[in-house]
């Protein structure tokens, strides 16, 4: 009796071992492919990638960037004209018809000079949207911009949840052709040697386009030469693994609604541990539970 039981157990263990081995191999292949799909890679190999630098102390809230963006991307005419200040009454987010918006904030230093913050995609070095996208609709280009391909998108909107800056907007106008809309850093213009429309149009020089490494140096210089004017913080230099679009400001970034609790590690790093466990769990658990079921069934049969 005892021997028989042992023999049975032995058999069960070896079968489990086989299944485990299969699961590990299967899981490993799945993980291997998924990490490749994420934008999780060292970006030191792209030293020439472009970026933008917004100087919040220069912006006067003229909304010229919004207008230039609208025209460059052939977006529909806005309901409220671009020279209307009533839009500042609410805090806006980019929408399907406006890739960038400017919001107004009270200036704690001077009440007569409100602060303005331009909002758009920050083109993260290791974008959360790209890592969340199940169909790889997002591409981090070596030139810097994070691009989106509507052809493969099926409208799950995971990217909207994954973005720490709440940027991707959904085009709710069309139910059959799902489409996410966001800033492209004027990739088409830049590819032809042009300048992103907002940077070119800004009369105050609040938005500067250039090589990211140059912009970091420029920002550092500005901060070093004007310590009274700027905080010693280049937002986006390290946040979520670094962004292409960076900011310098005279007030703490939290006061102008920047998320200030973001880790310096890329978001994909945060999720990788969990996500890579998913294929394993999906392969092992069914096998394990089936085995448990089979084992208990056998016992019942014997009884």
């Amino acid at each position: 009796m005892k021997e028989e039981g042992n023999g049975k157990n032995k058999g069960a263990v070896s079968r489990r071992e086989l299944l485990q081995a299969m699961a590990v191999v299967g899981g490993a292949t799945l993980i291997g492919s998924s990490t490749e799909a994420f934008a999780d890679r060292k970006l030191s190999g792209w030293p020439d990638r472009r970026g933008m630098l917004t100087d919040l102390t220069e912006c006067v809230g003229c909304r010229t960037c919004e207008k230039a963006c609208n025209q460059a991307n052939r977006l529909p005419e806005p309901e409220v004209p671009f020279d209307e200040k009533s839009v500042f009454d609410n805090k806006r987010r980019p929408t399907a018809s406006a890739y960038t918006v400017v919001n107004r904030y009270d200036n704690p230093k001077s009440s007569g000079q409100p602060l303005y913050r331009k909002v758009q995609c920050n083109h993260c070095n290791e974008p959360g949207c790209a890592s969340a996208c199940p169909v790889k609709a997002y591409t981090k280009t070596p030139e810097g911009p994070v691009l989106y391909n509507a052809d493969v998108c099926f409208g799950c909107r995971y990217c909207m949840v994954a973005c720490p800056f709440m940027v991707p907007a959904y085009d709710y106008e069309s139910a059959l052709e799902p489409r996410i809309v966001k800033c492209t850093m004027c990739h088409g213009r830049v590819a032809n040697g042009g300048i992103p429309a907002c940077a070119e149009a800004c009369p105050a020089g609040a938005v500067t386009f250039g090589k990211r490494s140059d912009l970091v140096a420029l920002a550092r210089n500005k901060v070093r030469n004007n310590p009274d004017r700027y905080l010693d913080h280049i937002y986006g230099e390290y946040e979520v693994g670094g962004t292409s679009w960076m900011y310098i400001s005279g007030v703490p970034f939290g006061q102008v609604d920047f998320p200030t609790t973001l880790p310096e590690k890329p978001l994909v790093e945060q999720a990788k541990g969990f996500l890579s466990a998913v294929p394993l769990v999906l392969t092992i658990w069914p096998a394990l539970l089936t085995m448990c079921y089979a084992a208990t069934q056998n016992k019942e049969d014997k009884e």
Binding site: E58, V60, G61, C62, R63, K85, G112, P114
Partner: peptide, 21 residues
């Protein structure tokens, strides 16, 4: 523009307070 904004910001012509400025 920066030369102008040094003074003309928030006071004269409402530049910096209203895009119509």
């Amino acid at each position: 523009h920066r030369a102008c904004f040094k003074c003309h910001r928030g006071d004269v012509g409402s530049v910096g307070q209203d895009p119509k400025g």
